[in-house]
Amino acid sequence: MDWDKLRIFHTVAEARSFTRAGTLLNLSQSAVSRQISALEESLNTPLFHRHARGLILTEHGEFLYNTVHEVFGKLSMAEAILQDARDSPQGVLKVTATVAFGSFWLAARIRNFVEAYPQINVRVLLDDRELDLGMREADVAVRLHKPKQPDLVQRRLMSVHIHACASRDYVAAHGMPRTIDDLDRHRLIIYGDNAPETLSGVNWLADLGRPPGRPREAVLRINNIYGLVQAVSSGLGIAGIPDYISRDRPDIVRVLPEIDGPTFETYFVYPEELRNSKKIQVFRDFLIGAVTDTEF
């Protein structure tokens, strides 16, 4: 099989459109379509169902995509390892983290790393789903739980504590709760239904001091920590907020400070194959230094 055609096929399969794939590949839509047709002809099987709303992989197309995706992932890994054989850290470094941690903590500190290592092209990918490091969707990750995959190198970074918080405007308008029972008379914001396993216990305020199976009603449910913080900041109500966010927000105050919420451990992880990568080593050291400088 022609590798150029497979590269184009891989892009089309992810874009689900000849036009979008052409933009990514800097080719015309007709050129992309011709390459896919030639690949299908050489394999004597259709790879896509053509629909007005886009392209859908056939069963054979799905099989080929999975195979090509795995091969390209391994080639990308090999390229990264070869690049790191040079004397100084350089090249692309893809870092993934959750939307909240990446937005509030990492993005506020990444400047020091970028300025210290200008030859490293940092790409931060914020996503609440876990990107596949083995398939090189990212090089390294900050995870809010201990990874289960045996082929990942992991380094514990810090503990994240959840505290009950509200905005100063909310407290001025509705008063400061003094006891757990006072929460029954306040507006609560919670993470929402079907919280992921990694955020187990994040809605502790709804259950705190309540009979089993009878949680407090929430004024708002929102399945994103960043959005939850914005709602609290607006003065809507009280919510559980990670300390790496609340400590840097003068508009937010802790309520019921004698009560602690859940604790999550954060880990820096990357594939075993990249253990000797210079750019990952210096990024690891940067994170450890940033954690040390952070007062919790």
Rank of each mutant, 00 (worst) to 15 (best):
M1R: 04
L6H: 05
I8N: 10
R20K: 14
Q29N: 15
A31L: 01
V32C: 06
S33P: 02
I36Q: 03
L39V: 14
T45M: 03
L47Y: 02
F48Y: 03
R50G: 01
L57G: 01
G61A: 10
E62G: 01
L64R: 04
L64D: 08
T67N: 03
F72H: 02
A80F: 11
R86F: 04
R86E: 12
T98V: 07
F101N: 03
S103K: 11
F104A: 10
R111S: 14
F113V: 02
V114S: 03
Y117G: 00
L126I: 04
D132S: 11
L152Q: 05
R156L: 01
I162E: 12
H163Q: 05
C165P: 02
A166S: 08
G175R: 00
M176S: 03
P177Y: 04
N194D: 15
P196H: 12
E197T: 08
L199N: 07
N203A: 15
W204D: 05
A206I: 08
L208W: 01
R210A: 01
P212S: 13
P215N: 12
A218E: 11
V219D: 09
N224V: 12
L228C: 10
Q230G: 10
A231Q: 13
S233F: 04
S233C: 02
G235P: 09
I238E: 03
G240C: 11
I245M: 10
R247K: 02
D248L: 01
Y267P: 00
E272Q: 15
R275S: 07
F283Y: 12
R284Y: 01
D285W: 06
A290R: 05
E295S: 10
